[in-house]
Amino acid sequence: MNRPSVHELECFVAVAEALSFSKAAAKLNLSQPALSRQIQGLESKLTARLLERNTRSVSLTHAGRLYLDDAKQLLTQLDRATEVIRRVGAGEPQRLRLAFVGALLDDGLVRLLQKFRTGRPDCQIHMVDMAPAEQLTALVGGEIDGAFIGAAPAKVSRQIETLVWKREPLQVVLPEQHALANGASLKLAQLKAESWVMVSAKAAPGFREHVSVLCRQAKFQPKVVQESDRVAAVLTMVAAGQGISVLPESLSRWLGVGVVFKNMHESKAMLTHAFAFRRGDPGAELQEFARMLAAQEG
C-alpha cells in the first residue's frame, strides 16, 4: 500500500491549520515549492484533493476537512507512542492520568481504582477533578488519558471513544417542606409547573441533554431559574427553596438536611456513566483499564 508519510501528514496539518502555504512553510522550515510538493504527493496517494488554493487564499475541501481530524489523531498517537517508549527506556514509572466529576465519586469508583492498582502496582494513577466539558477538551489536547464524564453528550469529537461502565437511577430533589416531599415516588409530569435549579449545560452537556429528553417525553420543558457548574451549589439552592432539581441517586448522601430525594416512575430516568478516552490510544495501561471497566459494567 502506498501510505502517506509522516512528513506529508505534518505538512498537510500545518497548511490546513494556517490556511496559508507561506505561514506553514515558515513553521516547518521549508520552502513553499517543497511544501507544495509534499501536499501534491499526499493528494496523489489519497486520490483526492484536500486543499483548494489560488494566489490569494487556501481552503479545505470536504475531503480535506474529513481527513484533518484523522491526520491530527495519527500524529498525536505517534507522539504518544514515542513518548511511552522514551519513558520506558529511561526507567520512568508508568502512569495513567484520569479525570473525574467530584460529585460522582463513590465507593464503586474507588474500588475500581484499587483493583487496577492491585493488578498494576507499576502504574501510578493521577486523578484530577474536572467538569465533563473540560474533561473532553483535555482529552483531545492530550492532557489526560481517560475521563469519567458521567452522561456522554450526543455528539463528541471523532477522536474520542466512550464506553458505559455504570448505570444508576435519577431522582427528583425537593426542598424538605415541598408539598410533594411526602410521596413515595413522582412522575416527571407532576413537576412541569415547578421552578428548576440545574447543573449548567456548559459544565455537563450530556447530563442536561438527557434530562431535557426525559422532560420532553413527559410533554413539558422545565422552567430553569438557576444554574450552577457545581452540584453542591445546586443542592444548596434547592434546600433554600429556590426550586427543585433532578440528580443521580448517589448524591443523596451529600446533604443530610434541607432536601429530599424521590424516585421517579419513568423507567428511562437513569444516568448512564461513561468513560471517555482517545480513539486508538496505544497505551497498554489505558487499554487494560478500559477492559476492566467494560467487564464490570452494571
Rank of each mutant, 00 (worst) to 15 (best):
I144S: 00
D129C: 13
K45A: 12
K223M: 11
A25M: 07
T76M: 12
L174P: 10
R95Y: 09
P222Y: 07
I149T: 02
I244Y: 08
A18H: 12
P248Y: 03
L293C: 04
V58S: 06
E266P: 02
H273G: 03
Q38A: 11
P93S: 10
G258S: 12
L271T: 06
A138C: 03
L74I: 13
L170D: 14
V101G: 02
K187I: 07
S195M: 10
A16Y: 01
G41W: 09
L112D: 15
V164P: 09
N54F: 00
A201E: 09
A240T: 03
A201G: 07
P169Q: 07
H178V: 01
P222F: 09
P175E: 09
K23S: 13
T76Y: 15
M270E: 15
V156T: 00
E266A: 01
P282W: 06
K187A: 14
R87E: 15
L60W: 00
A184P: 12
R56S: 15
A232W: 03
V257C: 10
I125Q: 05
L271Q: 13
Q124P: 13
V88G: 07
A204P: 07
G108A: 09
L104Q: 05
S267V: 11
V224I: 05
A25T: 05
G142F: 12
A218T: 04
M264Q: 13
L180R: 05
L46V: 02
S185N: 11
P132D: 03
W165T: 06
P175H: 04
L286Y: 03
I85F: 11
N29P: 07
A151D: 14
A99G: 15
A239P: 06
G280P: 04
Q40F: 04
L139V: 02
E161K: 07
M292L: 15
A233K: 09
A184R: 14
N182Q: 14
K262I: 14
N2Y: 15
D69T: 06
F116T: 08
N263P: 15
Q242N: 11
R53T: 10
D70T: 10
F261L: 02
L214V: 07
E52F: 06
V173Y: 05
D229R: 02
S22C: 12
A269I: 09
I160C: 02
G64Y: 05
L42Q: 03
L42V: 03
R37S: 04
A284C: 11
T82V: 04
E249H: 13
E194Q: 13
M1F: 02
M270N: 12
L113C: 05
C123W: 04
P282K: 05
G241T: 00
R37D: 01
V260Q: 14
D107K: 06
R117L: 12
I125S: 03
H126T: 15
E249V: 08
V6G: 08
P33W: 06
T82H: 04
F100Y: 13
A179L: 01
F220K: 01
A16T: 00
L66H: 14
A18R: 08
E227D: 08
